[in-house]
């Protein structure tokens, strides 16, 4: 193994350790939050056996303990030998964040404008974000939206929620 390879694996290990530190801290924060929340679970002192709080609190305790160990190892720059994290902040912001925002927007659009409009818009933007261009971009969204519409709401008979503002399908059916 060359010195350059070692430098590379060393850099990867240090990056993994940094990510482990952050992951450990998030896990500890989550455990603490859930533990505090568990204190509001009603408990009957006369009830035999373990209370409703025992299991959730045990899980929180273990999560906090293991999260602390992960964060501690990360702070010391140590990671498991085969453990290689791949998180990249810039990629997350450029690629994942817009797509996740779009998926949340889909829920909101679905509520306001019904399935068809929401899926058309979401699929169009998602295709654009993935790099689909030209004729394919123009055709993919309407074809797939209609296909899924007939599959789920037509063939399977899934209940279609009424749109709060305007549903193009209701308008088209009324013509």
């Amino acid at each position: 193994m060359s010195t350059r390879d070692l430098n590379y694996s060393d850099r990867r290990a240090r990056m993994t350790a940094r990510h482990d530190l952050a992951t450990g801290l998030v896990i500890v924060a989550l455990a603490i939050f859930l533990f505090v929340e568990s204190l509001s679970i009603p408990v009957d002192p006369e009830e035999p056996g373990l209370s409703s709080r025992f299991f959730p609190q045990s899980i929180c305790g273990l999560m906090a303990l293991l999260g602390t160990i992960l964060a501690f190892n990360g702070a010391r720059g140590r990671a498991a030998p085969d453990d290689k994290t791949t998180f990249a902040g810039s990629v997350f912001v450029r690629k994942v964040l817009p797509l996740s925002a779009l998926s949340f927007a889909y829920v909101w659009l679905f509520q306001l404008f019904g399935y068809t409009t929401a899926t058309l818009i979401t699929l169009y933007i998602a295709s654009y974000l993935f790099g689909v261009r030209g004729k394919a971009l123009a055709l993919l969204s309407p074809i797939m939206s209609l296909l899924f519409y007939y599959l789920f709401f037509g063939l399977m008979g899934v209940f279609e929620p009424p749109a709060e503002i305007f549903d193009v399908m209701v308008y088209l059916k009324g013509l």
């Binding site: 679905f110 699929l123 998602a126 993935f130 689909v132 993919l140 797939m144 899924f148 789920f152």
Partner: peptide
């Protein structure tokens, strides 16, 4: 192309979750 498959999967996943 994979870039045409994944946007469709996102839409199916959302509708499936609703179903």
């Amino acid at each position: 192309p994979a870039i045409m498959i994944y946007p469709s999967i996102l839409a199916v996943a959302c509708v499936s979750a609703y179903t």
